[in-house]
Nucleic acid binder design. Structure first.
Lengths: 349, 349
DNA sequence: CTGAAAGCGCTTACAG
DNA sequence: CTGAAAGCGCTTACAG
């Protein structure tokens, strides 16, 4: 068991100074070819690799990005990570992941821990609890310290920073209008409680579509789920009671649960009830019937977020104090048609 | 924009030495209560937090664990991460994640990059390419440097280190024997190519169960999938051609695809064909019919792996050079019965 | 009780 | 061409 070799040891071994070794390995022209080659050969032999931590300390940058997300077992977040990891890797950055578990405290602790020099910047999506509390001091603090933050998906207007989102409101609007235009009369909505930003926006889109098409809003047709883990019964009751001809759900889970509930109540999907979900994940793809859904490209979102963060990071090097000019990128969505809806024509008619 | 404050700045501000500040903040009894309180108050005011990188360099440990996995969008791996993250967090460790993307090169690059001081130890599952190549020099090197490695799920006998696995062979054996005992005659297997260690073990378990129960092995009833992304047609053809009365699949994806294929070929699941999968993930739960499956608790696996790694890490501190005594933990599995099988009685009869 | 010094592993401006 | 020194931000054994 040979511990990793250091410059100091090489220097001693070769009877030169540490500076000489360091310069040789960085191909400095200051050093004679003779010693340079000698040092390099020796270093290679002993498989020398500079210590990252020491470099980080010296350079005051770590080349690592922290991701803070509510949950990793949600397919959407996993794809976002995958997207981030990819462009981070291409640019020589590592990725550290922390899960807030939808808890405000965990989010705060993780951020504070990492903000102390461990990383160069954050990419994050807010936990539910943080969104419901509306307390963002931990994020503001980090930003004030000069550490860039990019938010995605679950964002807030209360913080100025780079963001990457989809147009939730519009995507919902489009989907629901499409249903209306295709003759559906009783379009139900299954959504989250309002403090979840994306849920709220999607609900607004639903309402907007109804109003824009002179469809009366029936509050009974809107189900707001509080407890995701036990939503099955709520949804079953909701569907059996209201007998909608279409259901628009704000996520995959609600959509697949709605389908199961519909079947249980004796309805066929899609001939009795059409179902549209949100997020094109594994559930939508493998469910029977497979689910028509608003795609939300997590890979692209993650990639974009990483690009924005890295850009800002490298910019800092150049012009010490760039003017803050934050951008919000909007990722395109589109409807992926599958088996859970009867064929949906586009356009007005 | 105030950059983070350092000991040096506090010292200057308060007109004391850096040592005094450091000791005050660490509640050293050497320091008079007077100055200690003064320093602490000042530090609190300016929200001082020690720089992690400096501490890492000083202590020669980073308190971070690296996870290297093939893919994050597989639900199983996501749950493992979740398990690791949880116990890591409890023990004050951070988690860095790298994806090998099933590529040998990426696995090597990631490991080498992180092994240079960035982390204290690895938890990993081998990429397919690494398994097929059988080249583990990068891992052996890391271990020789004195950095602990814990492998899980996709492991190899060629490396001595801590491991956490399930008994794939036995789990498969039990499932298949259960099918045999319940009267199934034509039990097909959908598996991976043999170099994927877990696929191989599960296949062996299947074969062992047939032999142990005097069922002739029919090679036609075994489908080995090479290209997971395009397995649907292969599976459709396989099922239509062989008309098995039961299918044992080595993962969720194969199981759900088999169900879809069976339906397409006009069979009912489970009344015509029963299907058992492997890994109790989101697909098995939400598929219609939901899938009977061998559960493989990723959270537990991850948690166990993290515990083993941390234990070894802290052990190192204590007795400088502990005797290497590697353990392999086997996580219990069990069959989760759902709708894709007709009721399966236990025991011999 | 306080502080100067050495050191973790590296880089680089500056002397010689 | 080579090396001593300072410094990144911290801790701690040792003097005073």
């Amino acid at each position: 068991m040979k511990r990793k070799i250091t410059l100091k040891q090489i220097a001693k071994e070769l009877d030169v100074s540490i500076s000489t070794v360091s310069k040789s390995l960085r191909d400095s022209p200051e050093i004679s070819e003779d010693t340079r080659l000698k040092v390099q050969a020796f270093a290679k032999l002993y498989n020398y690799k500079p210590n990252n931590i020491a470099l980080s300390l010296k350079n005051r940058k770590t080349k690592t990005i922290a991701i803070i997300i509510p949950e990793i077992v949600h397919h959407f977040f996993a794809t976002v990570i995958s997207g981030i990891e990819q462009v981070a890797g291409e640019n020589g950055y590592n990725v550290i992941i922390c899960l807030s578990d939808e808890s405000f405290d965990k989010e705060v602790i993780n951020m504070e821990m990492l903000a102390n020099g461990s990383i160069d910047g954050f990419i994050m999506s807010l936990s539910k609890e943080t969104q419901s509390k509306g307390d963002f001091h931990h994020i503001i603090e980090v930003i004030n310290q000069g550490m860039p933050v990019v938010m995605f998906d679950r964002v807030t207007n209360d913080i100025l920073c780079d963001k990457v989102i989809i147009d939730d409101n519009r995507a919902a609007f489009d989907s629901v209008e499409r249903l209306i235009n295709n003759g559906f009369k009783k379009i139900a909505m299954i959504t989250t409680v309002d403090y979840v930003s994306v849920g709220k926006l999607r609900t607004e889109g639903y309402l907007r579509a109804l109003r824009a098409n002179d469809v009366a809003v029936d509050e009974n047709l809107i189900l707001r789920i509080e407890d995701i883990d036990n939503c099955a019964e709520d949804i079953e009751r909701f569907i059996a009671a209201n007998k909608p001809d279409a259901v628009f759900a704000v996520n995959e889970l609600f959509a697949v649960t709605a389908i199961k509930a519909a079947k249980k109540a004796g309805f066929d999907v899609p001939s009795d009830i059409s179902v549209i979900g949100f997020t094109d994940g594994i559930i939508s793809k493998y469910s029977s019937p497979s689910i028509t859904t608003v795609s939300q490209d997590g890979i692209e979102m993650g990639g974009k977020a990483a690009k924005m963060l890295i850009q800002r990071l490298e910019m800092e090097d150049a012009e010490e104090e760039q003017e803050e000019h934050y951008r919000t990128e909007v990722i395109e969505t589109h409807l992926v048609e599958r088996e859970s809806t009867t064929s949906l024509k586009k356009g007005n008619f």
